[in-house]
Computed example of a mutant assay.
Amino acid sequence: MAESIEFVPAEYSHKTQPESTAQEMLRCGPADIDRLADAGLPFEVRSGVRHFDVNDLYNLGMYSGRGNTQPELAFRMLFRFAGRPVDDLLREKTWDFKVTLDCVACEGEAPWRFAAPDAARFGGRVAGGQAPQASTGSAHYQAKVTTLGARTPLLSAQLRRLTRDYLDSGYRWQMIPVAMQADYELVHALGATSCIAASLLLAERFRSAGYRAEAKRGWFCGVLGGALDLPHACVEVVDDDGALKTVDIAKAQLAARLSPDTGDFQELCLGSIYNKVIPSTACGNASFGQHECGSRQPVQVRADIRSMQGS
């Protein structure tokens, strides 16, 4: 199992999960953890207890083939919608959107910068959503965000070819720290990929082909009951018809891994929009939030996004 993934390099790794968590996530015992460590699973020993990077544990579980690990069960639940008719993804949907920004090493009162939802870019709307005021420690943002889907498939044969080339390249999707995802050349050199890294690379290839393209961040919503901030990104590109299209390359790749019955959803990811994604103003390798207090520690952004009743 350990040979099947690329572990997070030391410069990006944060080994915060104790061995008890590793056993729970992977549904295994101490002897299994010993074998994984012997096979190369990185760890640090603190107070006599081995600690692991949560991304490494997630990837081990996801590709274990056991069928009962926490990552495998979560993945199947996360993408169960992808095998259903896509019409439900095209209708208007409203979300109760709440975000908490935490400056964990705050150095005093200062303004906040938050990459707010930008649903209007694709026909949606935002109600409320006052920008956070200057403060210390933490800040909050709340709005009602309405999204909708639309079938706007890529028309350009060149854009479709570049997208298909990427999907056929054999990169393996893995859970990767956001800071490492921005280092997309390193990620792909390891044979791995992720939504941010894939979007940054594909946007670069689109631009090299003469198209206006940019990787943009947002939120993937309506999964696991909400209260889950997924580091989502896609490519926004101006197609041959002059319209702005989205290529959700990672979701197409993950859906293909889940089941061959997800073909309609995979096609929707290649140019169209769907109502489970809330776009933001952040570019692909930027943080959702910043606090201008002078702290060098990144702001922690926690999103709680829930479907509103009746939508």
Score class of each variant (00 low, 15 high):
Glu6Gln: 14
Val8Trp: 03
Ala10Asn: 09
Tyr12Ile: 08
Ser13Thr: 05
Thr16Trp: 12
Met25Pro: 01
Gly29Val: 02
Ala31Leu: 03
Arg35Asn: 09
Leu41Tyr: 01
Glu44Val: 15
Gly48Arg: 13
Gly48His: 11
Arg50Ala: 04
Arg50Phe: 01
Asn55Leu: 00
Leu60Asp: 01
Leu60His: 03
Tyr63Ala: 03
Gln70Phe: 10
Met77Asn: 11
Leu78Asn: 07
Asp87Cys: 03
Leu90Asp: 06
Glu92Val: 11
Glu92Arg: 14
Asp96Leu: 15
Glu109Cys: 00
Trp112Met: 01
Arg113Lys: 09
Ala120Lys: 12
Ala120Ile: 01
Arg121Asn: 00
Gly123Tyr: 13
Gly123Ser: 08
Arg125Ala: 14
Gly128Leu: 07
Gly129Trp: 10
Gly129His: 08
Gln130Lys: 15
Ala131Cys: 01
Gln133Trp: 00
Ser138His: 10
Ala143Cys: 11
Thr147Asn: 06
Gly149Phe: 05
Gly149Pro: 05
Ala150Cys: 05
Ala150Leu: 09
Arg151Ala: 07
Leu154Gly: 11
Leu155Trp: 02
Gln158Met: 09
Arg164Trp: 04
Arg164Ser: 13
Asp165Ala: 12
Arg172Phe: 00
Trp173His: 13
Trp173Ile: 08
Gln174Cys: 01
Ile176Lys: 05
Tyr184Thr: 12
Tyr184Val: 14
Tyr184Asp: 14
His188Phe: 07
Ala189Gln: 15
Leu190Pro: 00
Gly191Met: 03
Gly191Gln: 05
Cys195Gln: 06
Ala197Phe: 03
Ala198Thr: 06
Ser199Asp: 10
Ser199Pro: 10
Leu201Glu: 13
Ala203Thr: 06
Arg205Pro: 03
Ala209Trp: 00
Tyr211Val: 06
Leu230Lys: 02
Ala233Gly: 04
Glu236Asp: 09
Glu236His: 12
Val237Lys: 02
Asp241Arg: 09
Lys245Val: 01
Ala250Pro: 02
Ala250Asp: 07
Gln253Asp: 15
Leu254Cys: 10
Ala255Glu: 06
Ala256Gln: 14
Leu258Glu: 04
Leu258Asn: 03
Asp264Phe: 01
Gly271Arg: 05
Asn275Gln: 05
Lys276Phe: 12
Val277Asn: 06
Ala282Val: 03
Cys283Asp: 15
Gly284Val: 00
Asn285Ser: 13
Asn285Arg: 13
Ala286Asp: 14
Ser287Cys: 04
Ser287Glu: 11
Gly289Ala: 15
His291Cys: 07
His291Trp: 09
Ser295Val: 05
Arg296Ala: 05
Pro298Tyr: 09
Arg302Ala: 12
Ala303Leu: 10
Ala303Gln: 12
Asp304Arg: 11
Arg306Gly: 03
Gly310Thr: 06
